[in-house]
Structures are given as C-alpha cells and as structure tokens.
Simulated scan of single mutants.
Amino acid sequence: MRLASLFSALALGLAACGPTQTTTTPTAVTVPAIYQARVDQGPDGNPIDIPAVRAAYLTERNQRQRVPYNGTEAPGTIVVDPYARVLYDVLEGGEAMRFGVAVGRAGTGFEGSGVIALKRRWPSWTPTQNMINTSPELYAQFARGVAGGADNPLGSRALYLYRGGKDTYYRIHGTMDPSSIGKATSAGCIRLFQQDIMDLFDETEIGTNVKVRSPAESLAMEGRMIETPEGYVVPANDAAALQVQAAPAAGAVTTTTTVASAPTTTITTSPVESAVR
C-alpha cells in the first residue's frame, strides 16, 4: 500500500508536497467453499444445518489440503498422527489429502494398524461405565445414551476402527466444537471439522486400512513439533516465525512458550464431547 500510494503521488506531480498519507484496508478472510455452511439430512429425516467453519479456526495446518506424502502406506490408507494432529488420506502419486484433527487422550492410547469396519451417519453416543464412575456429575445424566443429532458429541459422521475383528473403541468422527480442531482435548479420539468428516466418510469404504502412528513414528515422519500459546502444534522449524521458543523434547511434541514458566500442556475441555468413545 505504501509503494502504491507513492507511485500515485509521483504520477500526479505531488511527490515534493510533503509526506504521503496511506490508508490500510483490512483484508477480508474468505472461508473456502468446502468449509461453507451445508444442510444435511438428520437421523430422523429432517434437515440439519451444518454451520460454516469460522475463518479463525482455519489455520494453515487445520485446513484440508493436498500435500506430498513420503510414507510407505499404500494409496487408500488412512494414516492418523495424533502427535502432529493431522490425518492423511493417502492418494496415488506420492500425495495425500491432509486434514487437521483434535486429539483426546484415547486418541493417543492406540497405535498400529486396523480397518474401518463400521460407518455411521449421525451416530449415537453412550459414555462408558468407567466415565460415569469417574465423573458422575458430568456423565451420569447421559447413561442411557445420546441420540444422533446436532448436539451429539460424535458429530455428523463416525468411522469405527477394528483390529482382529474386535472393536478398538477408536473413532474418527466429527465435532460440535470446531474451535477444538488442531488442539489437545481432555479425552476422546480423533475429531475433524464436520465438513471434513462428511467428505472423508463418503470416500472411505468398509475395510479401509488405517495406520495410527506411534510417538517415534510421528517424530521420524513429521519432525519435532511444539505447541503454540493458542494450543496448536507446529513443526519446530516454524517456531521462530511464530515467536515460540523450542525446548529439548522428550517426545514428539514439546509445549513451550516465550513466557518464563514451566512447559505446560494445553487442554481444551468440551463438556460431554471431550469423553467420546
């Protein structure tokens, strides 16, 4: 803007008339079409509005994008990296579609391979007995389950991971809290923006292979990650640009900030949703 104003002043012969004043116009952030509002058919057959994702939640790592992929998994495989907080849908030609995810504690409690054995639109959800026993004030009211719908913590779609014919209780699903994507949560598995899980659901067939990376595999494939003050993770090499100072890492993710305090883990707690299983 400053150069443009200067050139305009020169064209008018006003360059010697004093300082040039410039006006900065805020740049409007456009939400990509894939994250615009949608209307979906709910479990009762009635329409359910899927709100557009706010631009503030669409960070570079959170947005769905086609990227180079250097893993060994075959095209058609879903690769989950809970530590880098991304999910890859592996494509042909050494590429993958990358999605940002939110990760709960259950999302780091499983690693290795499995298959998608079930798919559910607007799935129901029931807290486990252990959840009810541990936090009855939060989960007892939902002991009979929560029917699928706009307020269900599993969101609009869910993919169920099995291994050896048995349910692993590992879920790839939507969310009613889009602000959590890219962050750690108090519990739960792997959640995506509603628009992302809807499209991934349609493209995923029963029997699709899934690979969930271990901390060591994440470190080898993605490099060391650090957590920003906002709760997102970014490659350590990007830390300087984000004014985040990295500290020696004991695992795949290090949480550090420029504030002079001990490293802490940022947990985003979403009542009810935070405990999906």
Rank of each mutant, 00 (worst) to 15 (best):
E205F: 14
K119R: 10
D202P: 08
A143P: 03
F110C: 08
P127Q: 01
F201M: 07
M97E: 13
L87V: 09
V79I: 01
S156K: 01
P153K: 08
Q65H: 11
T185N: 09
I78G: 01
D151A: 15
E92V: 13
F99S: 12
R191I: 13
R191V: 11
G94N: 08
T72G: 12
E205N: 15
I181K: 02
F193W: 03
A147Q: 11
A96N: 05
A143K: 12
K166D: 13
S135R: 11
N62R: 05
R105L: 14
P136E: 00
I172Y: 03
T128S: 15
W125D: 01
A106Y: 15
G114M: 07
I181W: 00
T108S: 13
Q195D: 07
G182R: 03
E92C: 09
R163Y: 08
E95Q: 14
Y169K: 13
R120F: 14
S124Y: 03
P68E: 06
P127H: 02
V86I: 11
Q195F: 00
G93P: 07
W125I: 09
T134H: 08
G165Q: 06
F201P: 01
I190N: 04
Q141V: 13
A106R: 15
L138I: 12
R105S: 13
A150M: 12
E137A: 11
G71K: 03
I197K: 02
M131K: 14
P127L: 07
R163A: 15
T77G: 04
L87R: 04
F99Q: 09
I116T: 04
G155S: 04
